[in-house]
């Protein structure tokens, strides 16, 4: 078991995520599958970056490595200045709690908590005082357009509303990075568009850094940077002009 380093390897602060020669393979010998092969990638603070590519290209594997839900077979993953390979389980929990926000494809809200409590969850883990939690959560719920619905449980919300709660949960603690795995995959076009507006707005107005995976060409068109993966390698890395806010 690795110990949390007292002085993590320093990297320039502007690079929130840095992958150096990262590879991930599953299985062994002739049966091994290489999900990622020697990927080098840096995501800087304030970026809205999309990971694009067909199924099996390595998008989810890359996100899992950045989220420290998985470990690379080779290479180094650094998140907000911390080399994730050196983290203990407790250090991993702290990194996820304090520096990374998550938005999942299937919302993954905690069903027994209200919208307010779901958005508050990470702040509660951080041990923030109740008054601060309330102030922050009410503010982010306002931002994501859920003011007035804070007492509803997930089952009482639509898919789009649930995903907005998930975004509120992801940004409430002001993480260095928000990871989103196919965040619009389960939403209709109109709701997906509204959600993208929200993410673009958060990125532009509050400087929230997003790294998300997607299949959706419409979503890709709204990203400022698109990293295309194929067969576990970076096929293309395009930086674009700022996207328009409104979709239609």
């Amino acid at each position: 078991m690795n110990a949390t380093p007292k002085n993590p390897t320093p990297v320039p602060r502007a690079e929130i995520v840095k992958l150096e020669g990262v590879g991930r393979s599953y299985g062994a010998g002739d049966l091994s599958v290489h999900a990622l092969r020697g990927v080098d990638l840096a995501v800087r603070s304030g970026e809205l970056a999309a990971l694009a590519g067909p199924s099996g290209s390595g998008k989810s594997t890359l996100l899992n490595l950045v989220a420290v839900l998985d470990r690379p077979t080779v290479g180094r993953v650094v998140v907000d200045g911390v080399d994730t390979g050196t983290l203990s389980p407790a250090g991993t929990s702290r990194l996820r709690r304090d520096r990374i926000g998550f938005v999942f494809q299937t919302y993954n809200l905690i069903p027994v908590l209200t919208a307010f409590e779901n958005a508050e969850y990470v702040l509660m883990l951080q041990g923030r005082p109740a008054a601060e939690r309330r102030e922050r959560v009410m503010a982010v719920l306002e931002v994501v357009g859920l003011a007035g619905l804070e007492r509803r449980f997930p089952r009482e919300l639509s898919g789009g509303q649930q995903q907005r709660v998930a975004i509120a949960r992801a940004i409430a603690a002001e993480p260095a990075l928000v990871l989103a795995d196919e965040p619009t995959a389960n939403l209709d076009t109109r709701t997906a568009g509204a959600l993208l507006d929200l993410m673009v707005g958060l990125n532009e107005d509050k400087g929230v850094t997003f790294l998300f995976s997607t299949h959706d060409p419409e979503v890709m068109s709204r990203a400022r940077r698109v990293v295309r993966l194929r067969d576990g390698v970076v096929e293309a890395d395009e930086v674009r002009a700022p996207a328009a806010r409104a979709r239609s």
Binding site: A90, S93, L95, N108
Partner: peptide
């Protein structure tokens, strides 16, 4: 999900 969010 809880573990991914940083729950100890």
């Amino acid at each position: 999900v809880c573990l991914a969010l940083g729950t100890p």
